[in-house]
Design a protein around this nucleic acid. Structure first.
Lengths: 133, 133
DNA sequence: ATGGGCGTTCCAGCAACTGGAAGGTCAAGC
DNA sequence: GCTTGACCTTCCAGTTGCTGGAACGCCCAT
């Protein structure tokens, strides 16, 4: 399979697949014309990467997961630890965004949104920062 | 005030403040020794930027908000529109993260996390992608 | 005059791609 | 057999928002 084929099948852009090769996540052999020739196993890895990335795992986490995926002697505990750490990170981000959402939601509510200059959003933004706790 | 002073007062690193000058968000004048001399108004802008960034506004959104902040003839509707757009973006991100959290949470629950190689997390990751809808 | 603690500039790098230029290859149609 | 167009290749630059470091200048106290 050429890169275009695996791009279609995996849903990843060809550019991204080349990038993944660059950083050593996949290593497709080359044909005599210099084209990358992807095997089924390469396609599996690309699917794996696409899915892992879509769940928010970083490239380095993906590298670790991929190594475990390929390691028949792995312990599922190792996989679970990576996933649980990532889950905590997701929770942290959700909390952070929820806090922004709360604050900003209040401000938007309070703003009349008319032709006049007076605006509680700007008033809030111009606040002094709390001296660090 | 020197950069160290406004860094302390605004809570922003000096590096960041120099960067903000680089991209034209603040324009402190220079003293005869070449040092940046920050006025009260510069400090206000830096506070504004720090707060806006902490609410997740992009640099370009901050530039727009700052322009409105400085424009006595602004319409609060313009401010509100920027804020509302950003709010929608936050909601989108929260939804995205929540969906990740849901999926990953289930997988982590389902994984025994022991010394055996069998792992539902890896099984899920290795899934074929849905052909694009 | 010397030391430390400021300040300055510029250059490089992070993540994870994405775009574009310049060129090589392949299969189909005439 | 030649052209056309779709594919493939590499490499370089840019994105966002900083952050680190090198190498240097300035200022104040001892």
């Amino acid at each position: 399979m050429n890169i275009g084929d695996v791009a279609t099948l995996s849903g990843l852009p060809a550019k991204t697949i080349r990038y993944y090769e660059d950083i050593g996540l996949v290593r497709p052999p080359r044909g005599p014309n210099g084209y990358r020739r992807f095997r089924e196993s390469d396609l599996h890895k690309l699917n794996f990467l696409g899915r892992a990335r879509s769940l928010g795992f970083s490239i380095e986490e993906c590298r670790g997961l991929l190594a475990l995926y390929e390691d028949e002697g792995r312990a599922s505990a190792d996989v679970k630890r990576i996933a649980r750490d990532h889950l905590r990170e997701i929770d942290r981000k959700i909390d952070e965004l929820a806090e922004m959402r709360r604050t900003l939601g209040e401000l938007v509510e309070a703003c009349s949104g008319d032709h006049r200059p007076n605006c509680p959003i700007l008033t809030d933004l111009a606040r002094m920062p709390k001296p660090r706790c």
